[in-house]
């Protein structure tokens, strides 16, 4: 899926979250958004998901995601940065996602298993009672259970331990081979392993757009904004 952003601007009250971002991501390309906290990475991802009304334009394969959310969301998977503090149980959430996506529940269960999450054992556990790592695994399982053409991930491995992170990389390679990826991350290993291109945001603006192996990417991630 191709992503086109043209002069994207978003303001929350006095805060200028995005200030005229223009970006073109070709179908199948993998791009990381990096930058300090508050640089507009999450806002940009949410705008691409059609969750925010912005000035400028967002197009996914030529369509506005704000207007065509349902049609596009069938082909998009999203891992938010902060897991919802849902009172619903893991089983309820998995069943709801399976139902609205027209998925077999086993697909979610198997994906969860691959990332070391036992969905059966957690069926009755409220999502908000899971640990940070478990919540993140659940969100990844929900996102990667179905084949999609665009993956949007906001710090997907921030709460994962080393084993789970390796399992995630394997799962990603297996399930999302041809998909476009838009990733927000502070982690150099994650960026290096998942993307081809890095876009640096600061103050809601694009300040650099470079291949992932450029030296300034390492400098940015290791020294300036390391979490």
């Amino acid at each position: 899926m191709r992503i086109e952003l043209n002069d994207l601007t978003k303001r929350f009250g006095a805060v200028q979250a995005l200030a005229g971002v223009t970006l073109d991501v070709a179908s199948g390309e993998r791009v990381a958004l990096v930058g300090p906290n508050g640089s507009g990475k999450s806002t940009l991802l949410r705008a691409v998901m059609g969750m925010l009304r912005c000035e400028g334009t967002v197009r996914l394969d030529g369509r506005d995601p704000f207007e065509h959310l349902t049609r596009l969301a069938s082909h998009v998977a999203y891992v938010p940065q902060i897991a919802p503090r849902l009172g619903a149980t893991v089983g309820e959430v998995a069943r709801a996602v399976a139902a609205v996506r027209g998925l077999d529940l086993r697909a979610i269960r198997d994906t969860a298993h691959e990332i070391r999450l036992d969905l059966d054992a957690l069926q009755r556990r409220p999502v908000r009672a899971l640990s940070g790592g478990m919540k993140q695994k659940l969100l990844i399982a929900l996102a990667l259970a179905a084949p999609v053409s665009l993956l949007i991930m906001d710090e997907p491995t921030a709460s994962l331990d080393g084993d789970a992170r390796e399992a995630f990389f394997r799962l990603f390679a297996e399930r999302a081979a041809g998909a476009t990826l838009l990733l927000s991350s502070h982690r150099l290993d994650e960026v290096r392993r998942l993307v081809h291109r890095v876009v640096v945001l600061e103050g809601g603006r694009t300040i650099r757009d470079t291949p992932v192996d450029a030296p300034e990417v390492t400098e940015c991630l290791e020294w300036r904004w390391a979490s």
């Binding site: 949410r46 998901m49 059609g50 969750m51 959310l69 349902t70 049609r71 969301a73 069938s74 998009v76 998977a77 999203y78 938010p80 919802p84 849902l86 959430v93 996602v97 609205v100 996506r101 969100l139 996102a143 949007i152």
Partner: peptide, 8 residues
């Protein structure tokens, strides 16, 4: 945020 990342 979670719900509206689904096709609803």
């Amino acid at each position: 945020e979670l719900l509206f990342s689904q096709p609803i």
